[in-house]
Design a protein around this nucleic acid. Structure first.
Lengths: 243, 243
DNA sequence: TAGTGGTCTAGACCACTCG
DNA sequence: GAGTGGTCTAGACCACTAC
């Protein structure tokens, strides 16, 4: 079923493996692009494209006129947490350890705010969903989700108990384009206290999100509320400067 | 002083301008790559590289076999906030509205945690700095920063009142490579209450960061504490899927 | 089938680092 | 000056969409 990946991805994967296996050591140079091109039997542009990807992922860095070096591990990264850049949803991330409890599932007419975020008219109904996601049966995050009903014709409780993203991609054959997120801190509200088990004064980490399909149509406005001590968001930020 | 930018960047800038000016409208296709290649007098690969950049920035999207389309504005984006991906520091972002108050500036020996985050030995001293950053004279963020002393030979109060990043790039001629950030929510502590003016039970948005130079050497471990109602972090997340 | 974007080549020139 | 990475070309083939 899986078509073969482009050469530059295969090569990137092989180099990634060599770094992982210690064949290419941190702080040391890897072979130059011409040598790699010969080794893999491809042109140098293809090698360059592989290296660009690894560079964006923070595994290597290049110095024009000098060489390409392996970048050591990032210290903070060892405590694994949810990357703020993610396109898969919680289900893919946590698999069978994740379960979901549907707290609310209604259809409403959009507020001004929802009309703006989802780019819809006042007469287009919106699904209003509240789900508690649990990891190993422990409350993990409380998700408030709004989606245009017209995009989700057969969304039902069975889907909500599993993955909305799978439903989008497998059943509706729609492709996720991207998301824009805002991360705040907030007080616990009554729902947080009731479902997440927060204490009244506990801080909450809230991730507000607008997500859209590949064609640019917004399909979800949501905010996810996490207990302050169970989750943090992580961001890797590579400086593309070559100046 | 500024060398001319590569063609693909110049072209990307021109296309960006056309989108901004409404010459290329949201949801509509822009000219195909061959047409653009002719118009700009470059090869198609160069056009492709321009479009890749715009695609990563969330301005356009491409559909193989179909065309390239302009992606409309992202709703949440209108309230401007600090992008979680940033390489410039607060000074570049806020300019003259920003001022800094140095609360603490000492040299310490590293803890186990600092040795790990900064990848240094137990006998290498560390600068320990606490700064309150103010915007329009209002408390904005309380920054706790740790940096290896050997990397910052002449760091002084004058620098701390302005920009550490400028000092790095201009005075020391070092280049920022990247940063890894973890974003949490937390309770206010005594320093937050005293300097940020938090109430005792106010939530705090904390950004913990390890930053390194282009050669991979970590130069800063810091955590920045923000009042819950004055700042949020934003992340743009584009799905690179072509599957 | 025609037209699109994605990949890849073989070579070229340039900018830069280092000895 | 030798060697490196960054850019760019002119063309080719492929995968995919729409008709």
């Amino acid at each position: 079923m899986k078509i073969r990946a482009p050469k530059y991805e295969q090569i990137a994967e092989e180099i990634r493996k060599r770094i992982r296996d210690g064949i290419y050591q941190p702080k040391t140079a890897i072979p130059d692009q011409n040598t790699l091109a010969k080794e893999f039997g491809v042109s140098r542009m293809t090698i360059k494209k592989s290296l660009d990807g690894l560079s964006m992922a923070g595994l290597i860095y290049t110095r024009r006129g000098d060489g390409t070096y392996v970048l050591g591990d990032i210290p903070l990264k060892i405590d694994t947490n949810s990357p703020a850049q993610k396109h898969t949803g919680l289900t893919a991330e946590l698999g069978s350890r994740l379960s979901s409890q549907v707290i609310q599932f209604t259809t409403i007419m959009p507020t001004e705010e929802l009309m703006e975020h989802l780019k819809i008219n006042h007469d287009e109904p919106v699904l209003n969903i509240i789900r508690l996601r649990l990891v190993n049966k422990e409350p993990y995050v409380l998700e408030h989700t709004y989606m245009p009903k017209k995009l989700m014709p057969n969304l039902n409780n069975r889907v909500l108990k599993h993955s909305i993203y799978n439903y989008l991609e497998k059943d509706l054959n729609l492709k996720l384009g991207g998301a824009y997120r805002k991360i705040h801190a907030d007080f616990s509200n009554n729902l947080d206290i009731r479902y997440l088990g927060s204490q009244p004064n506990d801080p909450i980490l809230e991730v507000e999100q607008v997500a859209w399909l590949q064609n640019g149509i917004p399909f979800e406005y949501s905010f996810s509320r996490n207990k302050y001590d169970t989750r943090s968001y992580t961001v890797l930020d590579i400086n593309p400067a070559n100046a």
